[in-house]
């Protein structure tokens, strides 16, 4: 069966199956198990309503449990076993990994990514959001800067491979160097700084995201506060830094953390641009180098990523709980 046909069958079965499940389970609950007719309909209705939420939630809970909660435990357990998975090695994978030069490079690079990408994306996002606010063609400008969000990391990497190409007739960077009389250079092979050339790609993609959210937040600022500041003689920069930024600092934090989390997951850019060579490895790409070869090591890397994300996770949950109350 061709994948296409298989896909159509899956849509029909999947969607149909889901609808049937929800519909049938509700019917069975209302008509068979707790019928409204019979000796005590009132008690039955209450009981049915106690069960119903779980009918609605069941498929989602199963999928979440299997595809996201079980892996946290499963990966941790797997990381305690050796390469082939038949011998318990305790934290052996972790200790050999921490001693590995490749891991240390990846870890440090990832740290650079976490410092640079969220900061730069948020900065440019805020800048564009503020600058376009007043322009007549602001929405078009925003739309164009937002566009890279739709492009895959692989596609974006290819786009930037052109910009970085080591040839003055293909790459913009080398064309500019050529114009000023400097010789061609392969920016992806300059030690240390090549990391930043890779980060630029993610900043290029994520600035649009930051811009959209910060622009929404800027619009939500009460006008009275700004008017009051202007009447008191504040100049535009003071209005921006002393009145606006403090009021949207919460949103800035959300944007910053969201991009930080993303940075820890993106392996595509490094994989496509350098394959982790020239000292550009980061944790996700380091992990993929071990995937299929040494699952013990791969899961250990994944668990390290999980540990880095953990504080954000806890913070998110606390925020959500505070909101519910």
């Amino acid at each position: 069966m061709s994948p296409m046909l298989q896909g159509i069958v899956t849509i029909v079965l999947g969607v149909g199956g889901c609808v049937m499940y929800f519909w049938l389970s509700n019917i069975i609950l209302d008509k068979v198990i707790f019928p409204v007719r019979g000796p005590n309909p009132g008690r039955n209705i209450n009981r049915a309503n106690l069960v119903r939420p779980w009918l609605f939630l069941m498929p989602a809970l199963l999928a979440l449990g299997l595809y996201l909660m079980y892996p946290v435990v499963g990966s941790f357990i797997r990381s305690l076993y050796n390469r082939s998975g038949d011998e318990f090695v305790g934290f052996g994978n972790y200790s050999t990994m921490f001693a590995d030069d490749g891991f240390q490079t990846a870890f440090l690079n990832n740290f650079l990514w976490i410092l640079f990408v969220p900061a730069a994306s948020t900065f440019f996002g805020l800048l564009v959001a503020q600058l376009t606010d007043q322009l007549k063609w602001g929405n078009i400008a925003k739309s164009l800067i937002f566009m890279p969000m739709a492009i895959s990391f692989v596609g974006a990497s290819l786009i930037w491979k052109f910009v970085y190409a080591n040839d003055a007739d293909i790459g913009l960077i080398n064309a500019m160097r050529d114009y000023f009389g400097a010789g061609p250079i392969d920016v992806l092979q300059i030690g240390f700084w090549n990391n930043f050339f890779l980060m630029v790609i993610l900043v290029w993609i994520q600035t649009g995201f930051a811009m959209v959210i910060l622009s929404g937040a800027l619009r939500g600022i009460p006008e009275e506060t700004i008017e009051a500041a202007i009447i008191d003689g504040a100049n535009p920069f003071q209005v921006f830094f002393k009145i606006k930024v403090p009021q949207i600092i919460g949103t800035i934090t959300v944007v910053w953390t969201t991009i930080t989390i993303l940075v820890l997951k993106v392996f595509d850019i490094v994989y496509t641009m350098t394959g982790g060579n020239f000292g550009t490895d980061i944790l996700p790409s380091y992990m993929m180098a071990y995937m299929f070869r040494d699952d013990g090591r791969a899961t250990a890397v994944a668990f390290v990523i999980m540990l880095i994300v953990l504080p954000v996770m806890i913070w998110n949950i606390r925020q959500a709980r505070a909101e519910m109350r």
Partner: peptide, 28 residues
């Protein structure tokens, strides 16, 4: 819908928002 454990499930969903995909690859 009102039921016991609703808050807990919402908290779990919020927490799972940031779980790195990498964890899921090998076990799944």
């Amino acid at each position: 819908m009102d039921f016991a454990g609703r808050g807990l499930i919402i908290a779990i969903v919020v927490g799972l928002l940031v779980v790195p995909l990498q964890l899921a690859l090998v076990p799944l």
